[in-house]
Computed example of a mutant assay.
Amino acid sequence: MYSVIVVRDIRKRYDGRAALDGVDLTVEAGTVHGLLGPNGAGKTTLVRILATLVRLDAGTATVAGHDVRRHPGRVRAAIGLVGQHAAVDELLSARQNLVMFGRLSHLGLAAARRRADVLLEQFGLADVGEKPANQFSGGMRRRLDLAAGMILTPKVLFLDEPTTGLDPHGRAEVWTAVRRLVAGGTTVLLTTQYLDEADQLADRVTVIDHGRVIADGTPADLKGADRLEVVTSATDMVAARLAVLGPVTVDGDRVSVAVHDRIAALTLAAALPDVEDITVRRPTLDEAFLKLVTA
């Protein structure tokens, strides 16, 4: 495995404000890498720089082995970009849309038609290929968007908020399509506001806030250890007993502590008096994210 995106100390300012302030990022080939952060954190600016839509002020960045500043044309030939809003023509059929994108990408007519047929099959749209896009559900339209982004079989696909506004079924359709892309060898850099989406799809996650990387690791790394939670009327006593496991948090009648051995922790908690409920659970990525950006 090699690094298909390498970013070192990227900086970008707008009107004197630092949008990116020394960002480092490494994305391994054949993976989904989640890029998370609150609004205004710098995610979109970073994606635009990597897609050669915005010039960086300082630092270096390579995509598929090409420097974004010195060889932008080579970078653009190696990437696909799917933005937040559908780019397809609603009045054209799915097949017509894909043929049009193929022609815009300098494919000959015959090659564009062949590529459209392949993509319709790959994204589960072959049976509706002749229907206009305005008759598609949100999930189907988004899959057509993804197919359009894959016209030239890019090595790297940038997905910016790919499931915004979709219902659960539509989101699941898009997730399935993304997994198929990665299984076929495409590397995906995913920005999303849905933390469960990053948890489901991403092999690794980078969190940006105020133009800086504040965390990087697998979703499991960021979520951390399981937590034992005990509901009790004797919080002081229970907290003192559970302190042998590590630092304890007390919130009302709930006492919690990080645990690394679930069985041992449950055995200890079950022996405590005045216990009303016991739970061991893994923190969610939402909880980890909120803790990071409010720290």
Rank of each mutant, 00 (worst) to 15 (best):
R8V: 01
K12L: 08
R13E: 15
R13Y: 15
R17E: 01
L25Q: 05
V27R: 02
G30A: 12
G34E: 03
L35R: 02
L35W: 00
L35A: 02
L36F: 05
G37C: 01
P38Q: 02
T44L: 03
R48Y: 01
I49K: 01
L50C: 06
L56H: 11
T62Y: 04
T62F: 03
G65S: 10
V68K: 11
V68F: 10
G73A: 12
R76G: 10
A77L: 10
I79G: 11
G83E: 08
A87V: 11
D89P: 13
E90A: 13
L91S: 13
L91P: 04
S93N: 06
R95W: 12
R95L: 04
R95I: 08
L98G: 00
F101S: 00
G102Q: 02
L104Q: 08
R114I: 09
R114E: 15
A116Y: 05
D117V: 05
V118R: 15
E121A: 15
Q122Y: 15
G124Y: 07
L125Y: 09
V128E: 02
P132G: 04
N134L: 12
M140Y: 08
R141A: 14
R141G: 09
L144K: 14
L146E: 03
A147T: 12
A148T: 03
M150C: 15
I151A: 05
I151K: 01
K155G: 14
V156Q: 07
V156N: 06
E161L: 08
E161R: 12
P168R: 03
P168T: 00
G170L: 01
R171Y: 06
R171Q: 08
R179C: 10
G184R: 07
G185Y: 13
T187P: 11
V188L: 08
L189H: 00
Q193S: 04
Y194N: 10
D196V: 02
D196T: 07
A198S: 00
Q200A: 15
L201C: 05
D203E: 12
R204N: 05
D209A: 08
G211C: 12
R212K: 14
A215R: 01
P219N: 06
A220G: 07
D221P: 00
L222Q: 05
A225H: 14
V231Y: 12
T235A: 11
D236Y: 00
D236T: 12
M237Q: 13
A239H: 02
L242H: 09
D251N: 14
R254L: 15
R254T: 15
S256G: 11
V257Y: 13
V259T: 08
V259S: 07
A270T: 07
A270Y: 09
D277A: 13
D277R: 14
I278K: 09
V280C: 07
R281Q: 12
R281A: 13
R281H: 14
T284D: 04
L285E: 09
L285M: 08
A288T: 05
A288K: 02
F289E: 06
L290M: 12
L292W: 03
A295I: 04
A295E: 14
